[in-house]
Nucleic acid binder design. Structure first.
Lengths: 206, 206
DNA sequence: AACTGTGAATGCCTTCACAGCT
DNA sequence: AGCTGTGAAGGCATTCACAGTT
């Protein structure tokens, strides 16, 4: 669609965005590359490089205008409106639902799914819970394009298959299991176990 | 301590390990580089490169012996025994506690902390919950070296400071807030919001 | 003086290509 | 024939260094 942005860069831009939103809400109008650098834990040069991909122009002594910067990021990599399904309404699912009642107007978790009869038809963190069997139907009705997997590991692959069948284009997997999806579906794994083990390793070496 | 392993490599090794543990439990004795590659979604050459850092020797037609491979990884990057504190026993904290009652004998979440009187002194997912004020004391008693932050964003920095004061060497931050820690403490952020936004972006472009 | 913008240099990571083993 | 082990090439990301701007 445009100049190809690498996975790494997308991540950094999203982090910049987080910082810029906070800064804007705090009333700031401009930001320096070294401030962003500190926030994202990278070098100022890196930040300026990234900014070269946008149209924002910074000015010595003033920095970059936050409003334009945000508009530019949003234009480039924030989809207009994304409807998301949460599958699994255990502790983890509820935690993520609670997160997303926050900011981020463009991304909404519009439906939750579970197999526990206790939860069906209840509204949890502002999100209605359906039975997992009605996923395909609800997904079509609500135009759902993303799925979040927060079910036990043993159901993860089955859930992924259901989501793919229901037509989602992207999946975020929180379950501690490796799942596979076909071509054309983007899969992002949040590997909590690995993150903790990695921390254990680096905490140990320094 | 040894040949310097990059952050990226550590992550890959930990992913290999996950796969190897599963394979071992499934009764397999050897594994091919292309199997690991498929599991970790990288190229077989990359896997073999990584393996060059270990002492395992593979053999054509047979692959790598899983047992030795695992021993090698563990020797190189799994600390003997790591005691972890969980701070925040909301949905997210409970979800992570539940995860870790699983495998991973070397990493144990030995204490949880919260400020809600309802939770103090209860045992949640096999983990005793203390008042946050006793963090420093319990951390010393239990030899805690890692902290997991699962509190609301507004308390994240304060929690991080408490953990650093209590002497932890690494922190995993689940709160949607940017926190800073001094030198000598490793900080790993699990950025759920960014992960979902990234997925939204890539799902959209392909 | 302080900060941006960017060509050039560096360094790292990944892939290629192929020799060697079983 | 199939897979490992690895030098060499290639590509990508980061940092350096400095000219340009206010």
């Amino acid at each position: 669609m445009q100049d190809k942005i690498s996975c790494r860069e997308v991540e950094r831009f999203l982090r910049y965005r987080q910082f810029l939103l906070d800064a804007r809400d705090a009333g700031k109008e401009n930001v320096f590359s070294h401030e962003l650098a500190a926030a994202a834990d990278i070098s100022p040069e890196q930040v300026r490089r990234d900014i070269m991909l946008l149209h924002v122009n910074g000015r010595p002594q003033k920095g970059y205008p936050i409003k334009e910067f945000l508009d530019d990021i949003e234009l480039k990599l924030i989809p207009r409106k994304v409807n998301v399904a949460m599958v699994g309404v255990g502790n983890l699912g509820r935690a993520v639902l609670a997160y997303f009642t926050k900011r981020r107007p463009n991304i909404s978790i519009v439906a939750a799914f579970d197999s526990d009869p206790e939860k069906i038809d209840r509204v949890i963190s502002g999100c209605k819970c359906y039975h997992i069997d009605s996923l395909a139907q609800v997904a079509k009705e609500q135009n759902i394009v993303l799925g979040i997997i927060a079910v036990p590991a043993s159901y993860a692959q089955k859930t992924a298959d259901l989501l793919v069948t229901a037509g989602v284009k992207g999946i975020v997997n929180f379950a501690p299991a490796n799942i596979t999806v076909g071509e054309g579906v983007y899969l992002e794994k949040i590997d909590i176990t690995t993150a903790i083990e990695k921390t254990a390793y680096f905490a140990n070496t320094l």
